[in-house]
Design a protein around this nucleic acid. Structure first.
Lengths: 135, 135
DNA sequence: GTTCGTGCAAACGGTTTGCAACAAT
DNA sequence: ATTGTTGCAAACCGTTTGCACGAAC
């Protein structure tokens, strides 16, 4: 994994700007599954004048460039994930926190081929709450 | 499965009305995974004056009553499914059609318990396109 | 007569877009 | 000079809500 955001963006043919770098520095290396608002707030610490529109546009740019994954974790809740390797997601219904679940947690046989379909994408979204530990 | 919508609604304590019955007759027995608009169009054939708001309210009522499942099949795409038994969904990226995939298609071990969580819900949404048949 | 269903239009919230200004090439 | 990035506000789209009316209880 490349930890130099400038190089990453340039490698995808994305022109650099201070705002884009700031967004990249946050969103490409976080494991917190941030929403657009999370990204906006984080970047605002360095660039108080950045607009929501720019954050939206930049995130879309990164998704289109294959740097980010959009994950639909709820009715009106989209979250971004820089981890593009196949994995699942578990949403804590109490806190809203999104957890990564390793792909191997489930045995999904013949995922590329289900009933005559070529599966291009598979999103498993689970919801649950932390179990009480019996003492 | 009860094929008398009046009885189904009454059993859930939902008061009957012509509009509700019309919505129920369509949405509780279809396998087409209709969107709100699909339901609206279908019911309009019998009740041309029914409003979108009533369709929305009625569908929400049915979901809350446990008669329907809301399925998030895309960014701005919600469909309704009267099949409440656990199963997965596969969306044809070319046609938008939603297919049911039997729960047993995947071996999902210990679904109730993943990494200290009690899983209450699990939605698997796949996207793909029909494979060309090699002749 | 109180409750509940309905239609209408307005409000809502997340996202996109058109435009003008400006920066980079 | 041309192209690309940004902020702003308006538009957009699916959904919800407030209100007034009328029907059901």
């Amino acid at each position: 994994m490349n930890h130099d955001p400038s190089a990453v963006l340039r490698h995808r043919g994305i022109r650099l700007s201070a705002h884009r770098l700031a967004v990249a520095r946050f969103v490409l290396y976080t494991r917190s599954h941030p929403s657009v608002d999370n990204v906006w707030n984080a970047v605002q610490k360095d660039f108080p004048m950045i607009s929501q529109a720019t954050v939206y546009n930049t995130l879309n740019l990164f998704v289109d460039a294959g740097l980010l994954q959009r994950i639909l974790v709820g009715e009106r809740r989209v979250v971004y994930d820089p981890d593009l390797t196949p994995h699942h997601h578990l949403i804590d219904e109490d806190t809203g926190v999104v957890h990564d679940i390793p792909w191997q947690a489930f045995e999904i046989p013949s995922i590329e081929s289900v009933e005559g379909f070529e599966v291009t994408n598979c999103q498993v979204v689970m919801r649950g709450r932390k179990k009480k530990v019996t003492p």
